[in-house]
Write a protein that binds this DNA or RNA. Structure first.
Lengths: 345, 345
DNA sequence: GTGAAAGCGCTAACAT
DNA sequence: ATGTTAGCGCTTTCAC
């Protein structure tokens, strides 16, 4: 070993006068090493500032203790709490994380990406790309080829794949029901882009809640946005024309709700007096909108944690019982009631 | 090779009737292979669906073509645009990315983290943890030990380390100067936490701009927040007491500015009539606050891209010229003028 | 243009 | 409790 190169297991073994295997046992905390030997080896490891090569280990064990995380649209993702949950939980369970971002939501060529992960011997894959258009169609053709467990976030239920998702339908029903409970009858909806699965779920929740209350949802009561504040403004202006009697609106996310509040403010529409508003997401700032926004809080940290926890379990169980049933876990979001939807005293 | 295990370079070589080295040359696009041989081998690679093991490659090349990215407080990081820039640029330059998140901003035990990256043979490290308190003190003791290039984001200038950062001081001066240009004289400041280097830079920019205008900044004109909307509200309320003549406020970020606007709205303070407000960050939503918020836009995508581009260059140059001068790159933010600070017509 | 030998740093399986 | 052998899948170096 020269001065500049890091020591290997071999140097440690030589200095300690043992075989590499014994050193290996020590660094892997195996029980079958004599206490004295262990002490001696540990001392030498310390002196040499030896650190085992994870690469070599991955090669010989044929696994890396890494997960592959695939995302898309990170820059739009609001506070990246899902990511944070994933990162924290992975760390806790002693897995490393490879991060990849798709260049666009509708990536067509999935295979190179999967292969990139597989070439690095990841133990599992987290698919954190929203379900949009046909961007899940590859699954049915390729899911069998993937030799590691894979978990999907934010996804419609499907055969043979494991999913962890927020219950968007439930959240939307809750939001709409809350507005009905406030005595509102003319409840509009600003949806996200309709090619997003999440948007469709939220739309459906709004529709079903209305129907259950004996109100038939009509086309003119809905306007489509693209999640941005800007699009929310346009959608709201459209609703004002197609649905002038509107006395409440359920917005597909908080950012679009923000521009409803803003438009209302400049046009002297009283919120909640003339118009009650409910958002979706539960951004921390939503409590500081004017007025404070009633919203559906989705716990994305928990979403991330659950995904990783589940994936880790899949990895471990796989050793014992190869092909288990896929899981389908939904996380219920919570209604947070604030000023924007509550009666004026 | 059994049916279930993936083919190795050896299987390809055997099927093609060549040695493994020849296959290696093909998969690495080396020129010294006969065209016919190359064709034949490529065909077999395709048939076998062979994919080289990045792990084995890393081991034998002693490098991984991965970067290590260390972050902290992902969940508060607003839209994770820096991350997005980093991910996109890494992908573009053909580097993989390990993502780690510190459990807290003031992590004390840095060495295990560094070793984790080094054990995986990363080619370079991106330190995307904000500079807070003494959380950079480890650098002077350990920077020499790190055997790979490392680049710091958002950091004060230092000897011997490479840095890419937004010019916070410049941005704050710009913001304050803009308010002065509008004829405001009583300009308060809501700062971020004072143990953050960024906060101190912004404070300093505000101070220097005032001084240059012949106004002496006083303690009572500043209130400290913690970046959250909630803290911004409290800070603003404090300023209303300590600095009642205030006719403008420069907020350390947009989220705190939001709650200034909100408080002003409920207390019937006219913005910008009675109070001009400028934020910092340039969140997309800030255009939809009421009124639309004047702010300092920091291009964090570019920040991330620049960091990766620089790091990649450091990696490549290292082969040629071992110890180059460290770089110090600042990115100038831009003033975006909107309703919240412009004169009422 | 191609191949043989040696090695990257570690661990699994089987001795002893 | 410890050592030996034989890989893991690829690249580097040198020979031809």
């Amino acid at each position: 070993m020269t001065k500049n190169s890091k020591p290997t297991i071999y140097e440690v073994a030589r200095k300690a006068g043992v075989s590499r295997q014994t050193v290996s046992r020590v660094i892997n905390n195996r029980p079958d090493v004599a206490p004295a030997t262990r002490q001696r080896i540990m001392k030498i490891i310390d002196e040499l500032d030896y650190h085992p090569s994870a690469i070599a280990r991955s090669l010989s064990q044929q696994r890396s203790y890494n997960f592959g995380l695939l995302t898309a649209g990170l820059e739009y993702m609001g506070p990246s709490t899902t990511l944070s949950g994933i990162a924290k939980k992975s760390e806790e369970l002693n897995y490393g994380l490879y991060l990849k971002e798709l260049p666009s939501f509708n990536a067509n060529n999935i295979h190179p990406l999967l292969e990139w992960f597989l070439a690095r011997q990841v133990d599992g894959i987290i698919w954190a790309v929203p379900e949009i258009g046909a961007n899940r169609d590859w699954i049915k053709d390729s899911i069998e080829d993937i030799r590691v467990p894979i978990i999907f976030l934010t996804s419609a239920k499907r055969e043979k794949i494991s999913i962890v998702t927020i219950d968007n339908y439930f959240g939307a029903r809750q939001a709409t029901q809350h507005l009905l409970d406030q005595g509102r009858k003319q409840i509009g909806h600003i949806s996200g882009p309709m090619d997003w699965w999440e948007s469709r779920q939220r739309l459906k929740g709004w529709q079903d809640a209305l129907r259950e209350a004996g109100i038939e949802p009509e086309e003119r009561m809905v306007a489509e946005g693209n999640w941005s504040s800007k699009s929310g403004k346009q959608a709201f202006e459209k609703l004002q024309i197609t649905f002038p009697e509107m006395d409440a609106v359920f917005s597909g996310n908080d950012q679009m709700a923000l521009s409803i509040l803003q438009t209302a403010c400049t046009e002297n529409i009283k919120v909640p007096g003339d118009l009650a508003v409910v958002g979706f997401d539960g951004l921390p700032e939503s409590a500081y909108f004017s007025p404070a926004l009633t919203t559906i809080f989705q716990n994305t940290i928990e979403l991330g944690c659950t995904a990783v926890r589940t994936l880790a379990r899949m990895v471990e169980e796989r050793d014992i019982e190869p092909s288990r049933e896929p899981v389908y876990i939904t996380i219920k979001p919570d209604l947070i009631i604030r000023r924007s939807s509550t009666p004026v005293e």
